[in-house]
Simulated scan of single mutants.
Amino acid sequence: MMNLLNYILWDPNLVAFKLGPFSIRWYGLMWVFGLVVAYLLVQRLYKEQKIKDEYFDPLAFYCFFGILIGARLGHCLFYEPDYFLTSSKGIIEMILPIRFGDDGSWLGQTFGFHVIGYAGLASHGGTLGLMIALWMYVRRTKLSIWTVLDNIAIATGSTACCIRLGNLMNSEIIGKITDVPWAFIFEKVDAVPRHPGQLYEAIAYAILFVIMWTLHKKKPEKIGTGWYFGFCLTYIFTFRFFIEYTKEVQEAFEASLPIDMGQILSIPFIILGTYCMIKAKKKA
């Protein structure tokens, strides 16, 4: 019989602080913090490479909306299409950060909905959205697509780490039941010890950032070949593929699949990343 006192009890407050009627959640705060860190890192990379400030200024706009739109659509289309695509209410909730219903929230009684933020963001969709946004960005600035992708890739680990820590604060994307001594009991979910999959990923992405930042100092000539971009994709989604074995499925339909949706969506990115690394090596 499990001794639940041997495990880590996890039940943090979802709200970091309040601004009037608005509640600022840890999840949203970690998202913003991760994007700000990446912004500062890429700004430094641009200065190191003597890229003009006028080319950097619009980058944050493209990245923010590319990631947000891609991550939101990725979750809605890949994980809950039956909910979001079968009614006008679902389509509105997919686009706007609201949830319909009367639960006594500050907007609920008057308008029939309350602002909850985007509850449901998929990293695979965010990655694809970012790639499309960067393609639009380089069309405007005429910079090399590989230079831009490599610079973003070098900073990506820091943002990905912050986002997974946000998931941990939300007690979401939980792991399977386990008896390892570092298991978490997510009290908002149930009373059994589980793998802290969010923490596994956060640590992996922090390590990725250290590797990438160190390598770019030693091999700055590789920036612009696509190697850093390829390595980033291969590292993240290979790890993501295997870490899925420690996670509970997010949607019921995944239980009938030989591998879950996260693993299925990771495979194309692993292939693309490997191709970019091989291409960069041949070019060198």
Rank of each mutant, 00 (worst) to 15 (best):
G175H: 06
P81G: 07
T127I: 11
M212A: 09
D82Q: 08
L149I: 12
R72A: 11
L41G: 00
V249K: 10
T110L: 11
A183R: 04
E244N: 06
G74S: 08
D190P: 13
M2P: 13
K218G: 11
V42D: 01
L68S: 03
P258M: 14
C232E: 03
M1S: 15
D103L: 14
I211V: 14
G157P: 00
E93D: 08
Q250A: 09
I154V: 11
K282P: 02
A191F: 07
N3H: 11
G224L: 03
T159C: 09
A280T: 12
V138D: 03
Y200K: 06
L40Y: 14
Y7N: 10
P268H: 01
I207G: 04
L208P: 00
A280K: 02
V249T: 13
W106C: 14
G90L: 04
L149N: 01
K247M: 05
L215Y: 11
M1G: 15
G112Y: 06
G157F: 06
W10K: 07
G74Q: 02
M169T: 11
K52Q: 13
S144R: 03
S105K: 11
Y79G: 03
L45R: 02
M169D: 06
H195C: 02
Y228I: 09
L41C: 05
G262I: 04
K18W: 05
G28I: 09
L257M: 15
T214L: 10
G112N: 08
L130E: 01
F209H: 07
F33K: 04
A155V: 06
P21H: 13
M1P: 14
T156K: 02
F237L: 10
G108N: 06
I174S: 02
C63H: 01
I203M: 12
P268I: 02
I174Q: 02
K188P: 13
Q263V: 03
I271S: 04
T238Q: 01
L121G: 02
D82P: 00
I116D: 02
K18S: 12
L128R: 00
W26G: 06
A202S: 15
Y83T: 12
H114N: 14
D103I: 15
K282A: 09
Y62N: 07
L149S: 01
W213V: 09
F84P: 01
D190A: 12
L199A: 14
W135Y: 10
G175W: 04
G224Y: 01
W146K: 05
A160F: 07
G28D: 09
I223H: 01
Y228K: 02
S144M: 06
Y83V: 10
L272H: 04
K283M: 13
T86S: 15
